[in-house]
Amino acid sequence: MASTSNSTSSKIITLRSSDGEVFEVEESVALESNLIRRMMEDDCANNIIPLPNVTAPIFYLVIEHCKKHAEMKDNKEKKKELRSQGEELLKSDPHTYSNLMEAVNYLDIKSLMDLTAQWLADFLKGKSPRLIRELLKIKNDFTPEEEAEILERNRWAFD
Protein backbone atom coordinates (compact mmCIF):
# COMPACT_ATOMS: atom_id res chain seq x y z
CA MET A 1 0.00 0.00 0.00
CA ALA A 2 1.04 3.49 -0.65
CA SER A 3 -0.15 4.66 2.73
CA THR A 4 0.98 3.92 6.24
CA SER A 5 1.84 0.61 7.79
CA ASN A 6 -0.45 -2.20 6.82
CA SER A 7 2.05 -4.99 7.03
CA THR A 8 3.07 -7.12 9.91
CA SER A 9 6.55 -8.32 9.18
CA SER A 10 8.07 -6.54 6.18
CA LYS A 11 10.11 -3.39 6.42
CA ILE A 12 8.71 -0.06 5.28
CA ILE A 13 10.61 2.20 2.92
CA THR A 14 9.91 5.91 2.71
CA LEU A 15 10.03 7.62 -0.66
CA ARG A 16 9.43 11.20 -1.74
CA SER A 17 8.02 12.10 -5.13
CA SER A 18 9.19 15.12 -7.15
CA ASP A 19 6.21 17.15 -5.96
CA GLY A 20 7.07 16.51 -2.33
CA GLU A 21 4.57 13.84 -1.38
CA VAL A 22 5.89 11.18 0.97
CA PHE A 23 5.06 7.50 0.41
CA GLU A 24 5.54 4.55 2.68
CA VAL A 25 5.96 1.38 0.74
CA GLU A 26 6.61 -2.19 1.77
CA GLU A 27 10.17 -3.20 1.12
CA SER A 28 9.13 -6.15 -1.05
CA VAL A 29 7.25 -3.78 -3.37
CA ALA A 30 9.95 -1.10 -3.35
CA LEU A 31 12.64 -3.60 -4.27
CA GLU A 32 10.87 -4.36 -7.54
CA SER A 33 12.61 -1.17 -8.59
CA ASN A 34 16.23 -1.81 -9.43
CA LEU A 35 16.94 1.89 -8.92
CA ILE A 36 15.74 1.76 -5.33
CA ARG A 37 17.50 -1.56 -4.82
CA ARG A 38 20.79 -0.03 -5.96
CA MET A 39 20.27 3.00 -3.74
CA MET A 40 19.65 0.78 -0.75
CA GLU A 41 22.68 -1.34 -1.53
CA ASP A 42 24.79 1.79 -1.74
CA ASP A 43 23.42 2.67 1.64
CA CYS A 44 22.20 6.07 0.63
CA ALA A 45 18.72 5.13 1.73
CA ASN A 46 18.73 5.49 5.45
CA ASN A 47 16.31 8.34 5.36
CA ILE A 48 13.75 9.31 2.80
CA ILE A 49 14.60 8.26 -0.76
CA PRO A 50 13.96 11.12 -3.18
CA LEU A 51 12.57 10.33 -6.61
CA PRO A 52 13.10 13.57 -8.52
CA ASN A 53 11.70 12.24 -11.81
CA VAL A 54 8.39 10.85 -10.58
CA THR A 55 5.29 12.80 -9.56
CA ALA A 56 2.87 11.56 -6.92
CA PRO A 57 -0.04 10.59 -9.23
CA ILE A 58 2.29 8.61 -11.45
CA PHE A 59 3.91 6.96 -8.47
CA TYR A 60 0.48 5.81 -7.30
CA LEU A 61 -0.04 4.23 -10.70
CA VAL A 62 3.33 2.51 -10.58
CA ILE A 63 2.64 0.97 -7.20
CA GLU A 64 -0.84 -0.09 -8.23
CA HIS A 65 0.52 -1.90 -11.26
CA CYS A 66 3.36 -3.47 -9.31
CA LYS A 67 0.75 -5.08 -7.11
CA LYS A 68 -1.45 -6.14 -10.01
CA HIS A 69 1.58 -7.68 -11.59
CA ALA A 70 2.45 -9.61 -8.47
CA GLU A 71 -1.14 -10.90 -8.31
CA MET A 72 -1.22 -12.10 -11.86
CA LYS A 73 1.64 -14.54 -11.50
CA ASP A 74 0.45 -17.90 -12.87
CA ASN A 75 -2.99 -16.47 -13.58
CA LYS A 76 -3.53 -16.41 -17.33
CA GLU A 77 -6.87 -14.62 -17.07
CA LYS A 78 -5.41 -11.76 -15.04
CA LYS A 79 -2.44 -11.61 -17.38
CA LYS A 80 -4.69 -11.19 -20.39
CA GLU A 81 -6.77 -8.61 -18.58
CA LEU A 82 -3.76 -6.56 -17.57
CA ARG A 83 -2.32 -6.72 -21.07
CA SER A 84 -5.56 -5.47 -22.60
CA GLN A 85 -5.78 -2.43 -20.31
CA GLY A 86 -3.16 -0.54 -22.31
CA GLU A 87 -5.44 -0.03 -25.29
CA GLU A 88 -7.91 1.94 -23.18
CA LEU A 89 -5.26 4.02 -21.44
CA LEU A 90 -3.51 4.89 -24.69
CA LYS A 91 -6.76 5.91 -26.33
CA SER A 92 -8.02 8.02 -23.47
CA ASP A 93 -4.84 9.40 -21.98
CA PRO A 94 -1.57 8.91 -23.89
CA HIS A 95 -0.07 11.63 -21.74
CA THR A 96 -0.37 9.59 -18.56
CA TYR A 97 0.89 6.56 -20.46
CA SER A 98 4.15 8.23 -21.40
CA ASN A 99 4.59 9.54 -17.85
CA LEU A 100 4.07 6.03 -16.53
CA MET A 101 6.41 4.52 -19.10
CA GLU A 102 9.16 6.98 -18.31
CA ALA A 103 8.72 6.54 -14.57
CA VAL A 104 8.93 2.78 -14.93
CA ASN A 105 12.04 3.15 -17.06
CA TYR A 106 13.62 5.53 -14.54
CA LEU A 107 12.75 3.32 -11.57
CA ASP A 108 14.00 0.37 -13.59
CA ILE A 109 11.18 -2.08 -12.86
CA LYS A 110 11.62 -4.88 -15.33
CA SER A 111 8.22 -6.52 -15.05
CA LEU A 112 6.36 -3.25 -15.55
CA MET A 113 8.73 -2.17 -18.30
CA ASP A 114 7.77 -5.28 -20.25
CA LEU A 115 4.09 -4.71 -19.60
CA THR A 116 3.93 -1.03 -20.50
CA ALA A 117 6.11 -1.49 -23.58
CA GLN A 118 3.82 -4.31 -24.67
CA TRP A 119 0.84 -1.97 -24.29
CA LEU A 120 2.13 0.45 -26.86
CA ALA A 121 3.35 -2.37 -29.10
CA ASP A 122 -0.12 -3.97 -29.09
CA PHE A 123 -1.62 -0.55 -29.69
CA LEU A 124 0.51 0.06 -32.78
CA LYS A 125 -0.33 -3.31 -34.31
CA GLY A 126 -3.06 -3.31 -36.91
CA LYS A 127 -3.68 0.45 -36.89
CA SER A 128 -3.07 2.69 -39.87
CA PRO A 129 -0.40 5.39 -39.48
CA ARG A 130 -3.13 7.99 -39.81
CA LEU A 131 -5.12 6.54 -36.92
CA ILE A 132 -2.02 6.21 -34.75
CA ARG A 133 -1.14 9.86 -35.39
CA GLU A 134 -4.63 10.96 -34.53
CA LEU A 135 -4.91 8.95 -31.31
CA LEU A 136 -1.43 9.73 -30.01
CA LYS A 137 -1.52 13.36 -31.20
CA ILE A 138 1.59 12.86 -33.29
CA LYS A 139 2.12 15.78 -35.65
CA ASN A 140 2.95 14.83 -39.20
CA ASP A 141 5.93 17.07 -39.97
CA PHE A 142 6.75 15.58 -43.36
CA THR A 143 6.16 17.43 -46.61
CA PRO A 144 4.02 15.46 -49.07
CA GLU A 145 7.17 14.80 -51.13
CA GLU A 146 9.05 13.41 -48.13
CA GLU A 147 6.12 11.25 -47.24
CA ALA A 148 5.88 9.87 -50.76
CA GLU A 149 9.57 9.05 -50.70
CA ILE A 150 9.29 7.06 -47.47
CA LEU A 151 6.32 5.19 -48.86
CA GLU A 152 8.25 4.39 -52.01
CA ARG A 153 11.31 3.17 -50.10
CA ASN A 154 9.35 0.57 -48.16
CA ARG A 155 6.45 0.06 -50.49
CA TRP A 156 5.99 -3.54 -49.32
CA ALA A 157 4.94 -2.57 -45.82
CA PHE A 158 2.31 -0.01 -46.86
CA ASP A 159 -0.64 -1.57 -48.58
Binding site: A117, A121, L124, I132, A157
Partner: peptide
Protein backbone atom coordinates in the same frame (compact mmCIF):
# COMPACT_ATOMS: atom_id res chain seq x y z
CA UNK B 1 12.22 3.11 -24.82
CA UNK B 2 10.90 3.53 -28.34
CA UNK B 3 13.44 0.99 -29.64
CA UNK B 4 12.25 -1.46 -27.05
CA UNK B 5 8.63 -0.96 -28.09
CA UNK B 6 9.35 -1.24 -31.80
CA UNK B 7 11.27 -4.44 -31.19
CA UNK B 8 8.01 -5.97 -29.91
CA UNK B 9 5.96 -5.46 -33.07
CA UNK B 10 6.20 -7.41 -36.33
CA UNK B 11 8.49 -5.92 -38.97
CA UNK B 12 5.64 -4.71 -41.13
CA UNK B 13 4.21 -2.70 -38.29
CA UNK B 14 7.67 -1.42 -37.33
CA UNK B 15 8.30 -0.16 -40.86
CA UNK B 16 4.93 1.59 -40.90
CA UNK B 17 5.93 3.68 -37.88
CA UNK B 18 8.55 5.40 -40.06
CA UNK B 19 5.85 7.50 -41.70
CA UNK B 20 4.39 8.86 -38.46
CA UNK B 21 6.76 11.80 -38.17
Amino acid sequence: ILHHIISLVPFTCAVRTSILS
